[in-house]
Design a binder for these strands. Structure first.
Lengths: 237, 237
DNA sequence: ATATCATTCAAGAGATTTATTGAATGATAC
DNA sequence: GTATCATTCAATAAATCTCTTGAATGATAT
């Protein structure tokens, strides 16, 4: 950009700035709702460009360009499989980054509450229940436990006895539930909002719905049992 | 913004998108080298607008606008002190977010190496030394340990026996060191690049300089002793 | 080789972001 | 009250990003 007469007495400013530019470019890659949605899709498992274009309702070329941008900064990687290009998140750091951003968004309570209130209808949110309580009530059988994550993640591992209830289908599922039975909802973890959104919607429909502290990873870390779904072939890797 | 005719059958799409927009806007706030530099400055401690404008070489109004953008998304907060507006990072999550982005940048080894090689001059980077080895060599007294963090952080706590060597001053300090004595450099932690940059520069000058695994927080977590600097009044909070 | 399909590249109009300028605000001192 | 200083606001031109279009590539099948 500028600097041409840099005597470089110590660390040269241009190198320092080059690194900062690198940081900024990673953030820039995340700074688009479309790319964020692409990452959310990829968080559920690797997908081809066509599937992603369809899910995100982006044009083909546009979707491809966004994916390339994400790849350029190392947030996703791709491989070819025949004619198809399969994209996936590079590693857990990408997930962690998304989770951290979501956590910060949540802590912007003032602003996010305006949005969440659109979901919750102004009803006050109850405290999450601990995993210990969840385990007790689950053993007693007097609660319904919902796994709000995408079906792929549910299949790969879930709390035994939980029902798979992807966010999109919570409303539909609610019609078959008894409103007098409490509902505990969980998702990916403390920074994931799926369970919050689902519980808010269920409370709005008159259910006694609460979220669970932490998500499946925390449950697993407690040393508690995890169930998987055996599907036709190798649906679970 | 838009949506007026949303029957909201289950989770309404507009709420979902509103949240994703919120995430993206947080990332967008980070997606500018200038704002990233402002955050780096603020990571060293709270500062007024004038100090930040000077440090980052931004015009006053421009600096103020960038800070407002960071505040808008909750990454920093401000308070008034007389006529001055003092800004600081909202909480550790902002630091964590920066660290994670830096880590991802570092893992983009292909690209970042091109930049780091500009610092390292193509010399291969040795493995970091463990904190255990550091403690032994420090006790034996046959190494120089450098703390590459900003002076404020050094004052608040550092490895006993370490010299404060802010990145900007490493080159200058090097002139007073014996090139035959190995140098161990540390900074904030595994995702902070200060020590890497300092060690690269020192190696380029002919020193045997290596980084330490982890940073001061890890050292502290090991239960090892930490020294502080007592300054005039309440420099250390 | 040719055809076909999925993906990528390249270029341009349109929208958004940025830095600058100069004026407005808010807090303190007189 | 007025003056002064630090900061913020508002408006504009320049730079950048985005999406669309249509052509180019790469892999497979015929």
């Amino acid at each position: 950009m500028n600097d041409t007469y840099e005597p470089a007495p110590s660390m040269s400013t241009s190198n320092k700035l080059a690194l900062i530019d690198e940081y900024a470019s990673i953030a820039r890659a995340l700074a688009s709702p479309h790319r964020m949605r692409l990452l959310e899709q990829l968080a559920q498992g690797e997908k081809g460009v066509d599937a992603l274009a369809e899910k995100t309702e982006l044009s083909f070329a546009n979707c491809s360009q966004h994916l390339q941008e994400l790849r350029r900064v190392g947030l996703v990687t791709s491989r070819r499989e025949g004619k198809a290009a399969i994209y996936r998140l590079t590693d857990d750091d990408t997930l962690r980054l998304m989770a951290l951003i979501q956590k910060i968004a949540r802590q912007n309570i003032d602003r996010v509450d305006e949005i969440l209130d659109g979901i919750a209808g102004g009803i006050e949110r109850p405290e999450p229940v601990s995993r210990e309580v969840l385990a007790e009530r689950l053993a007693a059988g007097d609660v319904v436990v919902l796994d709000i994550r995408p079906p792929e993640e549910f299949a790969a591992g879930h709390i035994p006895g939980a029902l798979s209830a992807p966010l999109d289908e919570v409303g539909q599922l609610a019609e078959s539930l008894d409103p007098s039975t409490p509902i505990f909802a969980y998702c990916r973890g403390p920074y994931c909002l799926y369970a919050d959104r689902a519980a808010a919607e269920l409370r709005q429909r008159g259910f006694d719905a609460r979220t669970v502290e932490g998500g499946l990873p925390d449950w697993r870390a407690d040393g508690r049992p995890v169930a998987t779904v055996d599907r036709a072939v190798d649906a679970v890797i």
